[in-house]
């Protein structure tokens, strides 16, 4: 009796061990690459942030928090933080609301759905560097179509990308144009996922107007989607780089200096790796804070477990 009972136990152990070995083997390449290309560089950035390492010079020394102290008196970096914040504060909310609005319009209109979806999504699938070039032409102060159109109605158009008080707005317009379609598609998916019965129940329960049904059903049911769209919109806005590099190089007068562009220039143009590493840590801290905000603060409110 005892021997019969113990036999299967031994077999299960063998199976578990075999699975463990195979599992490790299958995951080994991924683990190795994560260590090499994510964990090690992360640690290196952390360490480099405390050094005065510059590419091209053989030696470097630890300088403690000097880089971080310099950061917060560096006018370029502070401008860069401020500009990134302003850019994000324009792009994220506008592209969220526009995305939601367009999704609701498309959902309510049976004609031309796929055409509209394609039209709004096209910028998402387009090469941003290339389209930024097109926008540069559109924004051109003298020969650009936008100002030409404004002249037709008697308005003198601004120097969109060339004036320091306009450049962030212009970049934000491109950013919004580029990201609305993405948000719209997420909202469309969210809308389709709402059970039709809920609207039927709302109607029977006395929700007469479209507005009532929106606040009783649509808006709460889009909660998780909205949370995700908010987070991804902010993160993508904070990561703005392509348009700045292509169109303004941070100018004029550092008016479009943004975080990633400043890091890029310090690290890869001036080759001040240590200093750029400290900036990178700040950039990462921003991302971490955003993620934590998503998971901790808002998640509780919108998840219907």
């Amino acid at each position: 009796m005892a021997s019969i009972a113990s036999t299967p136990v031994v077999l299960i152990d063998l199976e578990a061990e075999r699975q463990m070995r195979t599992g490790l083997l299958l995951a080994a390449p991924a683990i190795l690459l994560i260590l090499v290309f994510i964990v090690a560089p992360m640690l290196a950035v952390l360490v480099l942030g405390f050094t005065d390492f510059e590419l091209g010079y053989g030696s470097f020394r630890f300088v403690g928090l000097e880089n971080y102290a310099e950061l917060f008196s560096d006018r370029t970096f502070l401008a860069s933080l401020r500009n990134t914040a302003v850019y994000t504060a324009i792009v994220a909310p506008v592209s969220l609301l526009l995305g939601l609005g367009l999704a609701l319009l498309i959902e309510s209109e049976p004609v031309g759905r796929s055409f509209f979806r394609t039209a709004f999504f096209l910028p998402v699938a387009s090469l941003l560097v290339a389209m930024a070039t097109v926008w540069q032409y559109l924004f051109h102060p003298s020969i650009g179509p936008i100002n030409a159109a404004l002249r037709l109605v008697g308005v003198a158009g601004p120097n969109w990308l060339g004036a320091s008080d306009m450049v962030l707005t212009s970049l934000a317009i491109i950013g919004i144009w580029q990201s609305v379609g993405f948000n719209m598609v997420l909202f469309l998916a969210g809308l389709t996922a709402i059970p039709r019965d809920l609207y039927a129940a709302a109607e029977v329960d006395g929700a007469k107007s479209a507005r009532d049904r929106f606040f009783l059903v649509t808006w709460p049911m889009l909660g998780p989607t909205t949370l995700f769209v908010i987070t991804i919109s902010i993160i993508n806005a904070v990561k703005v780089f392509e348009t700045v590099k292509t169109l303004t190089e941070g100018g004029p007068n550092k008016a479009s200096e943004v975080l990633l562009f400043t890091i890029y220039r310090e690290g890869f143009v001036y080759l001040r790796v240590g200093y750029a590493s400290a900036m990178t840590m700040v950039f990462l801290a921003v991302l971490v804070v955003l993620m934590i905000a998503q998971y901790r603060l808002l998640d509780r409110e919108v998840h219907y477990g």
Binding site: I38, A40, P41, A44, V273, T280, L284, L287
Partner: peptide
């Protein structure tokens, strides 16, 4: 969480 921008330097 970590984009290429953060690991690019090293």
């Amino acid at each position: 969480l970590v984009p290429i921008h953060a690991t690019a330097l090293p």
